[in-house]
Design a protein around this nucleic acid. Structure first.
Ligand code: NAD
Ligand code: NAD
Lengths: 232, 232
DNA sequence: TCGACTTTGTGCACAGCTTCACAAACAAAC
DNA sequence: GTTTGTTTGTGAAGCTGTGCACAAAGTCGA
């Protein structure tokens, strides 16, 4: 029942590699803008913040696109990575929950530039519905299924309160969506074949706090027991 | 030079475990609110969306806090995980860059509840400086060092445009900060001992697009070459 | 006190990822 | 054509994380 998604093993690209390809792509685009024609694995790795051997192995999963003694052709590699990631086509994205976060996402220009087109904004609050944000009119959450089907939405961003997230999730999956980006602090239950990626800012801060504490104390304090006054 | 941060290996908690502790904590808090007194690894694992053996192994790194035949005391475990993560103390957080995203973060109530207190909002735009957001007045980015020192800021959130991120990063590190949460789409260069966690929405979408494409085509299309008209 | 039952904590095998190190491949110069 | 120099692609080793499976440790009822 709680089977994990082995995904991406289809014809072989490791998940860890897939997660880094966008990083390489970004570095390559920066180089292309600066007119760089070819780049060595060493330089590209530096720009992407990874080990050069890892970079080469990652790229080798896509094919043999480098030239020994020279490096990689920047434009060609951009094309190959884009194709592998599916960025040569446009993706219609819907944002459900147009509050603080949903608004920020809708107003953000950085998505369209990578082939992610915001095709719908949905909210349950009548006060928000009808509002115009970034050239789109917010629609009522009741229209969810119809918006998804009508506009060919294949990726849904959930930015509702945690309490509504699972319900929204169930509905978009029923409507045929299999890719979800979740900002609500809940573990979404989804059937096999559906990909959920979560962005959880509280968790990130808590991980930072852990390391920060470790840095402050030279190791964990030896107060393993309950503090005074706390009963078990 | 590009040495990785082995961090957290100090007295042994694996990084993967640290990343999951906040998840357990969240599930436990939900249970505590519903009045649950004890919980088995099986049930907690289900709530957190992980394997129960993994959960037990994770918790075993903190100590032997369970009772065989019974499970874990919810309150006690909440306390132990909180302590391990450093959440028994308050952390002062500053947000640099009060645009779309910075505003959403400042207005978000979910941080304060976990001991992360927003202690400063900073922006370089004179139009934004002076604005009051979530009870705080936005200060000028020039005040960065002074705000950090005066208010004991130990975690900085960077929500500036990508072009300003590295510069802001350098300044906060010079001011003594060693924990950074970065939203700008750049790989920040930092010295050893500084922890950077990044949240990159474009990358998340690109990973989803990759899997979505794989699901659409039953495997990758066999057009490995350049499309017509593209020259190398 | 004892035995039946439950659940933890962990040894172990394995799967995946990272890194090193180097042969093979190619370019360029002569 | 040969040599010199550079950089890729990858075998192999090591490391980290996962999950099974089970003994040990505890509860609880009789
Ligand atoms: N704002 C942040 O910086 C931040 C940070 C971390 C996590 N989050 C999480 O992201 C989510 C959104 O945060 P926010 O600050 O934008 O919250 P918000 O309350 O400002 O916005 C939520 C929006 O969702 C709408 N909504 C509620 N139920 C809905 C439904 N069933 N269908 C469609 N829309 C619905 C509400 O009307 C509201 O407009 C929350 O789960 C929050 O925990 C936000
Ligand atoms: N908004 C989103 O949903 C979103 C999504 C993904 C990534 N991002 C990234 O997050 C960052 C912020 O995004 P945004 O939409 O809020 O951008 P924004 O342009 O709305 O806000 C950026 C703010 O930073 C301020 N700023 C610029 N230089 C500064 C400096 N040196 N010191 C302090 N403040 C400075 C600007 O005045 C502005 O107010 C960007 O890097 C963006 O790429 C945003």
């Amino acid at each position: 029942m709680t089977r994990r998604i082995p995904q991406a093993r289809d014809r072989g690209i490791p998940d860890a590699t897939v997660a880094r390809l966008p990083l390489y792509l970004r570095a390559l685009n920066g180089m292309a803008e600066r007119g760089v024609a070819t780049v060595s694995s060493e330089d590209l790795a530096l720009a992407a913040g990874v080990n050069s051997a890892k970079l080469r192995k990652d790229l080798s999963h896509l094919g043999s696109y480098g030239t020994r003694g020279v490096g990689y052709d920047v434009q060609y590699l951009i094309y190959q990575i884009s194709r592998e990631l599916g960025l040569t086509q446009d993706w219609a994205v819907a944002i459900v929950g147009v509050g603080n976060l949903g608004r920020a996402l809708a107003n953000y220009g950085g998505f369209a530039t990578r082939g992610f087109r915001i095709a719908g904004l949905l909210d349950a609050d009548p006060q928000v519905v009808g509002e115009r944000i970034a050239g789109l009119v917010v629609e009522h959450a009741d229209e969810l299924e119809s918006v998804i089907k009508k506009r060919g939405v294949s990726i849904v961003v959930i930015a509702t309160p945690a309490t509504a997230a699972q319900q929204v999730c169930d509905r978009v999956i029923a409507a045929g969506v299999t890719s979800i980006l979740n900002f609500a602090p809940v573990v979404l239950a989804v059937p096999d074949g559906v990909d959920v990626r979560k962005v959880d800012l509280s968790i990130e801060l808590q991980i930072l706090a852990f390391h920060e504490q470790r840095k402050a104390n030279g190791g964990p304090i030896m107060a393993e027991e309950w503090p005074d006054g706390v009963v078990m």
